[in-house]
Design a binder for these strands. Structure first.
Lengths: 222, 222
DNA sequence: GAGTTTTTCTTGCAGTGCAAGAAGCTGATG
DNA sequence: CATCAGCTTCTTGCACTGCAAGAAAAACTC
């Protein structure tokens, strides 16, 4: 009989597993993540991971949670300025974070949002708005809207580049099909009008924050 | 030997397969969709479906495509009124559609957006704005922003209800943990302030459209 | 009828998440 | 030192997935 031997203990931790998973999806994409492969990356058999994480769903949740914890500092710099500026910078920072981890973006967008780390982030945001005299309900509307706008926009932005495995949309298909049925879009693709994602993001963000600020200011006068 | 017999032809079509898939995920959820189960629902062996659809990715893309085609009529009623109203009604209708098909929402949000049906929809939108004198680049910004806001918001809205299989967030966890670390959120959960998703959606949508309308109006005067 | 094309099925493969439990490693206790 | 209890790792096995390859049946054409 081949003498089987268990590897000497590797000092694994739930945290180390989750961090390794984050690194793994950053490099290989979300679809490539499996227990056995992640185990191999950690020098361990696949089933070993179940000792630290009860299920794959829990692993994904843990990854979102960890990503938010690690980035909480970057997302909310110390509040200096009116809430519109603080929240605006938060959104810009959040978009950058999501663009840096596109695999996690789809997880974050798909899984329920009421986790400790995201609630803590939300609470910090409310505190910022509260300090400027924004009522609780309005603060939640602002923050929810900004977060969801940022997630929605970044999803679209990442989805433009067809790096999603599966069917390929054909990059030059545009120029061919458009011309007749889609004249406006065809023009946009040649002149490049309205195709700058970052510009669109910042523009709408500005409009959103200015609109809320105006509405809240009006409400306070009355 | 058991005499195997192939079933008499069922008159299947790519379209029928995709429609059945849409009905299937509406009832059983996206995770439950597999070729064999979908085949069974159609009275056919699983591999048969590959005669109509080249891969599962193509099936998902086809489902999004079909859903948009089927709903294109509802999404854009004939334009009657200023573009802000037409686009606003479009967004409300889109949100309703996505809430009716939450499984498709995650597919739509995750897959690349440049498919024929979505491009056609976009083209129609541009035409509406163009008729009101909105330049091409601005029209694209408006439409992209509204679509992405609607998708982002609805993702969050659907994610609140933890119908996602996997780990359960614990519905009463809130009241317990909050109080100390998350005072504002705790208050929101008791008073219900800022928890009305539809209200938040309409409010932000209104602010968004009004903000863009004002900015575009200002640009035209100059 | 024979032959062709279209549609369906069978088999098989590599991979997945996970349940159950065996086996090894490690440190505390006698 | 030996023993024992725990923690950690591995093995095996199951039901399931998407998909490749090709056999076989059904329907259409002549």
């Amino acid at each position: 009989m081949a003498d089987r031997r268990t590897r000497p203990r590797t000092g694994l931790t739930r945290e180390k597993v989750i961090d390794a998973a984050l690194a793994y999806v950053d490099e290989h994409g979300l679809a490539a993540l499996s227990n056995r492969k992640l185990g191999a990356a950690l020098g361990v058999e696949g089933m070993t991971l179940y000792y630290y994480v009860p299920s794959k769903a829990a692993l994904l949740d843990g990854m979102v949670e960890r990503l938010l914890e690690l980035s909480a500092g970057d997302l909310f710099a110390e509040p200096s300025g009116p809430w519109t500026q603080v929240v605006g910078e938060f959104a810009v920072e959040l978009r950058r974070l999501l663009l840096d981890h596109p695999a996690m973006l789809t997880v974050l967008a798909t899984r329920p949002a009421a986790t400790p780390a995201s609630l803590a982030l939300l609470e910090r945001g409310i505190a910022v708005l509260h300090a400027d005299g924004v009522p609780l309900g309005d603060a939640l509307d602002v923050l929810n809207s900004v977060v969801r706008w940022t997630i929605g926009h970044t999803l679209g932005e990442v989805g433009e580049t067809p790096h999603h495995e599966g069917t390929e949309p054909g990059p030059e298909q545009f120029a061919a099909l458009d011309r007749e049925a889609l004249p406006h879009l065809a023009q946009a693709f040649t002149t490049g009008e309205g195709l700058d994602s970052e510009r669109c993001f910042r523009r709408t963000l500005r409009i959103l924050l200015a609109g809320y600020a105006a509405e809240l200011g009006r409400a306070r006068e009355a």
